[in-house]
Design a protein around this nucleic acid. Structure first.
Lengths: 224, 224, 224, 224
DNA sequence: TATGAATGAGAGTTCATTCAT
DNA sequence: AATGAATGAACTCTCATTCAT
């Protein structure tokens, strides 16, 4: 108790600075969602009601700001997985997990959708890593209850979420819901096993870093 | 008759002009695939071995060139659907359809993947429209044979392909294959119906134009 | 004869482009002279009556434009040295060499003066290299005539010119003239030898690249 | 008496404030020497271990801080001149004067060298003014001893130092030394007088303010 | 008094697009 | 019809300087 409770993050920010920082992240969410990764930092800053230079005091560059926003998304997603794991009925938990997570994605869909290209995949991987334990517990119970096919692993949910994420927002609420249903049907016990093996965590990490260029300034220019 | 009889299509091009046009489209495919939508028209033109201004003689702007490329992809996809419909075993036909189409997507994945954000969805819709008849024949036979659930429609395949398309390329060949399997499992007959209704064609068209901004210069700038 | 006479430089420029290119170099001379290396490319371009982007078509960046201007200076200086070497009276030739060269420097003094810091020294070195032969012939004759001290070499003139260059312009014409006289007096035959040895060409080259940072973006940022 | 008696100088500073002030000047010396005039005030302040805003409490702006540093250099140079004037052998005194002064310049050469362009010349003038008396005494004795040409005046040493200063640092120690020797040889008695007259103090002052822009924000922007 | 944060005003560079040859 | 050149409009990022604590 006492003072220590407050001493959390790195380098306690001044009250107004912290406020601006969050305003920027929120603005990033909105602006990036609306206009995609090409939105200018200037616009984001204006939307936040601060000067661009202020954005640069808080984030090394445009990409860092976007990354920070994704980081907050991941935190929220992890919370969802953990809450789902606590659900008594494992199938209900799984359903709830997919729906809530996709709802989260949908609420800033354009953003996540766009960001995935530049560096979002690594966050999906991070999401998975931080989610694996909870999901595994859930799957274990589901398998025990015989409500899910035996050959699905926690790591399968990274691709599954990415797949479903791609159509989240296709139409406000109902359409994606239909395909969550389709996927859930595919997860039911079945005599025909799924082809291949679930991806290893290592593999997902590779995929993420291959797809979302870690250095967004890589591959440029041609033969000139 | 005479020469004029041949001049059917939109403004018969001189042989070399037609060649340049296709060179540009091919270059677009390669360059956009490698560097994404941000690749400059100048680079694409250089890659094609022509001058930028020449590109502008053929395409109103950068976006039209990209669209033209997508149009050619759609043509190839339609051909796949029609061939699938001719397959005697309907389930095999369906499987083959999904695999071939995703293979097509994968082969210029980076491109399609990237373009989807800016104006690709409308092409998925177009793909669907031009595919519906063939797919419907296939589904009809599958339903009759009892190998597929009754509540799936041809229009469901637009979202399904978009979903699977999102992970095509996640890892060279096998990983996507696993989730095609998952989706196919979900398509098998089942007592639990899918939630909601298949999208109408009209709806898919709306979705497409909402998502892929028809005017890429829309929603720009703010209160300035 | 014939067409070939015209085919000189690298990549024959279109007439107007060549004109613009020279306008830019001239503008650079004036603007850099007046405002130093910090003058903006935008100002230079405006002064030349063209758009900044046009400047970028001709020069990779601000530094290349400045370098190009210096290159032209060096050419003119080399011509002076060669003309001086042709002078029958070696002492008169030497005097003439120093005066003309410094006059040249003075005429865009602020520029040279400023540029020296960033990358000019390398041009002084180049100047020397391309001048050495002519100067050496001149010195040889002067030594033979006994009008100059024996221990001065052609390579000494790089530092000497830099020294005198530093005060060229201190006041229009006469003041520098006085110190050219002082240096010439110091070059007269004398029983006391100069300390040390004349610099080797190799050494001058090192000095030049040490002083004028070849990579102007080197040494930046600190411990952050 | 009492506290007030001590408050003589310009606004007696609190002990810690005075310490910060000097820390800033020292940091300026180091940082400007290392990175040139373009070093940011922020970096200088960080190097000094204080905040930028603190720098602004002490100095009106970046340029004032740089000037202050130069002022301290001048003080040290004046001390050298006075010590040289006390040397019994006038030629040895002169030699010692040039060498020590250039050593001083060399030790923060990059700095002096860079600063000269922006506003340093005025300090050379100030240096001269405060040095003239001592130098004149030295020259008087040298002329009397017949070891120096009769037509050199104390005011000639401003340009001479600037000249030599320009190559100080060309290579660590020896190269400049060689040209000090050259200049000293030129100062020896000679039948041929130097061209022109030594500059008047008035003139040097003009030169200084012409060259080192007193208002660094002068001549900016163009016809816009 | 000293600090952390904020800001306005560029600077350099790039690109889609249009003109002149 | 095709090219080389030109342009205007941005965009990212930096810095000297000023507020608010």
């Amino acid at each position: 108790m006492g003072v220590s409770a407050a001493a959390a993050g790195p380098r306690r920010l001044r009250a107004d600075a912290a406020r601006n920082r969050q305003k920027l992240i929120d603005a990033a969410a909105e602006v990036l969602a609306a206009r995609g990764l090409d939105a200018t930092l200037d616009d984001i800053a204006r939307h936040a009601g601060v000067n661009v230079a202020t954005a640069y005091r808080h984030f090394a560059n445009k990409h860092e700001l976007a990354r920070e926003f994704l980081r907050q998304c991941v935190d929220r997603a992890v919370a969802i997985a953990e809450q789902a794991a606590a659900e008594p009925d494992p199938w209900a938990g799984l359903t709830w997990f997919l729906e809530r997570t996709l709802e989260l994605i949908a609420s800033n869909r354009a953003l996540v959708d766009v960001l995935k290209h530049a560096y979002g995949a690594e966050h999906f991987a991070e999401l998975l890593q931080r989610t694996t334990a909870a999901l595994e517990r859930l799957l274990e119970r589901a398998r025990a209850a015989g409500v899910i096919r035996a050959d699905v692993a926690a790591t399968d949910f990274a691709p599954i979420l990415e797949m479903l994420g791609a159509i989240t927002g296709l139409a406000e609420p109902d359409l994606p819901h239909r395909y969550i249903g389709l996927v859930l049907a595919g997860l039911r016990p079945s005599p025909d096993p799924l082809p291949g093996q679930p991806p290893t965590e290592e593999r997902l990490r590779q995929v993420a870093t291959t797809k979302g260029l870690s250095d967004p300034f890589a591959l440029r220019r041609e033969m000139s």
